[in-house]
């Protein structure tokens, strides 16, 4: 039996870690997107704010969840950098002519740009947290309970066409990352049953499209005043 550190530092161990942390984040995106759909409820944000309030009133439990997400994110980023360094070291003399072999190859713009789409997502995450989680603290009262008015902050933010534009571009970037990431994670985890893997491949592409499109449409709807 190899030591844990050895195992996690091997090229295969790293990919297990990448896949697990990535899938955790893909799962988080689904819950995030579902909650964001409440923004379109045409209720002046009552449902959205109430949901956010219920999360915030979890107290220490929320900190644990946030800590867990932050840790998995940083571990994902750390291994992304390591993998990128290892693959660059593995070919220092580059080809003069490159091409795609076609056929069963899965090499795409998405698969070749994971570190760049990931890097952009990293920067975006910081801005996103700064703008909302650590953004202006408006308050509102829903059914007699005073709570943070995150809805107002979101709606105000997405009146700015530049912020909407940046967000939309970033969701294309997210879609590209997920396009290769989701099926790839199952392959990295060792799913060798070809029926399941084919399912993961189709499902992964659909997931990437649906999640990116979902996130894409919400600020666009707010900007255009749909569902307000």
């Amino acid at each position: 039996m190899a030591s844990l550190a050895q195992a996690l530092g091997s090229t295969i161990g790293r990919k297990y870690v990448m896949a697990i942390t990535g899938l955790i984040w893909a799962g988080f995106l689904v819950s995030h997107l579902t909650a964001n759909l409440l923004l379109l409820a045409s209720d002046d944000g009552a449902a959205f704010n109430t949901y956010a309030y219920s999360l915030m009133s979890l107290g220490p439990l929320l900190w644990v969840a946030e800590g867990f997400l932050a840790a998995t994110f940083l571990i994902h980023v750390y291994n992304a950098v390591k993998i990128t360094m290892e693959k660059r070291a593995a070919r220092t003399s580059r080809y003069q002519v490159t091409a795609n072999a076609g056929g069963p190859s899965r090499k795409t713009i998405a698969s070749m740009s994971m570190i760049y789409t990931g890097g952009l997502l990293f920067v975006f995450m910081i801005l996103h947290l700064k703008g909302f989680k650590f953004g202006t603290e408006y308050t509102t009262t829903v059914d007699g309970t005073e709570m943070r008015d995150l809805y107002r902050l979101v709606v105000e933010t997405y009146q700015d066409p530049i912020k909407v534009g940046v967000y939309l571009v970033m969701m294309v970037v997210l879609g590209l990352h997920l396009r290769h990431a989701v099926w790839s994670a199952f392959q990295s985890l060792g799913v060798s049953n070809q029926k399941y893997l084919a399912l993961a491949e189709k499902g992964g592409y659909a997931f990437a499209l649906l999640v990116a499109l979902g996130f894409f449409l919400i600020p666009l709807a707010i900007f255009l005043g749909v569902g307000q």
């Binding site: 091997s10 295969i12 790293r14 990919k15 693959k87 593995a90 190859s105 899965r106 698969s111």
Partner: peptide, 22 residues
């Protein structure tokens, strides 16, 4: 074999699948 593969300086697998194609 995996340990030796890493030691030799081969890169990690990113599931591009070009190998299968060639």
């Amino acid at each position: 074999m995996v340990e030796q593969m890493d030691k030799e300086g081969f890169g990690p697998c990113s599931n591009h699948g070009e190998c299968e194609a060639v």
